[in-house]
């Protein structure tokens, strides 16, 4: 069983509001080691400087979108095994199939509850303690 507090997470979203809400949900779950990035480019720089166990990334972002970030994460040996959960809008469900092709671990449709986020994380890491 994985300890929630042991999972290091990078949240990538171009909206401060959404990053803050996701961080608050993660803290409620017990995941306190959370970093943030404002787009895929900054997310890649963060991961290169310090890998994370989990990336939670929006799809629609400037510079490098979520799909581009996913591809780069999978192509970079130090991060290729990083768990990756993609956030998407209802209209973006066709992107999920493409994300699966590039090795996404799970996806979550916005807006979502803390329980739904926890459930998606547990699908990847197993039951959290």
């Amino acid at each position: 069983m994985t300890t929630a507090a042991s999972i290091t997470t990078l949240v990538v979203d171009d909206q401060l509001t959404m990053r803050s809400l996701i961080r608050a949900s993660l803290q409620q779950i017990g995941m306190t080691d959370v970093r943030e990035a404002v787009d895929g480019e900054q997310g890649l720089r963060e991961l290169a400087a310090r890998p994370a166990h989990l990336v939670i990334s929006d799809f629609n972002m400037p510079k490098l979108d979520g799909l581009g970030l996913l591809r780069a994460v999978r192509a970079f040996p130090p991060t290729k095994n990083t768990a990756f959960i993609m956030l998407t809008g209802r209209a973006d469900l066709d992107l999920v199939a493409r994300a699966r092709q590039f090795g996404v671990n799970n996806y979550l449709v916005k807006p979502f509850t803390t329980q739904a986020l926890k459930s998606k994380i547990e699908d990847v890491f197993g039951k959290l303690q």
Partner: peptide, 26 residues
């Protein structure tokens, strides 16, 4: 509450992304 706020954030995000996808600059 937080989940309500996330709904609002998503409503704003849809509008902003709709603008950006039509060429608007943030």
């Amino acid at each position: 509450g937080r989940e309500g706020l996330q709904y609002g954030a998503y409503a704003m995000e849809l509008l902003i992304n709709g603008m950006l996808s039509r060429g608007a600059r943030r």
